[in-house]
Design a protein around this nucleic acid. Structure first.
Lengths: 109, 109
DNA sequence: GTCGAATGCCTTGACTGTCTAGGTACCACG
DNA sequence: CGTGGTACCTAGACAGTCAAGGCATTCGAC
């Protein structure tokens, strides 16, 4: 029973971009994948997810297209753009630097 | 010239608590110490710092007392309380779990 | 002597991102 | 027929951070 992170504080975009780097996915599947992959340590609230997807689409990081889910249901499939791929690289580096700095201070050497 | 983290997204409290775990310090010194220790990768804005200190004092994590800085100037010295020490432990664990989960997803194995 | 930079504290206002808590619709299963 | 899973969406509140100011003191350089 993982307690799960309460707040994604700014990492959601990067996590979504990373998920999409494995191939197109629809919103619901993105959330599922992230939760599964993190062993439920990360919880993606839908009220955070969908606004994030719009935001990122508006910024040109991802593109949407209506299609079908694996189960044959109507689903909006998101795909990484070139700009999004670049953004992913930038955010990943930024995370590595930030998390490294915080960890060096907080965590026992 | 490190580009520095733009946004502390929720880690400021833990960072302050950790700083104070080495002994009492005043606000300005907390910011200095964090920036120095992180080699300027973390930047503590004063508009974030002071509200955070009030917040934490209100919650009983720290206690303030007027005194003098190392340079003999008037300064408000903050000290960790027992509750604050417990809070630091909790936030540290939370950070380790969260940062671990995000890193496992974002960063190359 | 005065001027700038550093020390030290503080406030206001806006913004961004997340969360809570709802809602819709469809489908499968018991 | 009701429940639970899939899939999308929205409104409203809230918290934390930031930018950009302000004030007072001290100290060294010019």
């Amino acid at each position: 029973m993982a307690v799960a992170a309460k707040d994604l504080h700014g990492t959601l975009d990067a996590l979504i971009l990373k998920t999409l780097s494995w191939g197109p996915r629809h919103g619901y599947a993105i959330a599922r994948w992230l939760e599964d992959t993190s062993a439920d340590e990360l919880v993606i609230e839908e009220g955070s997810l969908y606004p994030a997807l719009y935001r990122m689409e508006r910024r040109g990081w991802i593109e949407a297209e209506w299609g079908e889910s694996e189960l044959g249901r109507k689903a909006k499939l998101y795909r990484l753009t070139t700009v999004g791929r670049r953004q992913l690289r930038a955010e990943t580096e930024e995370w590595a630097r930030f998390a490294g700095a915080v960890s060096r201070i907080l965590l026992p050497a």
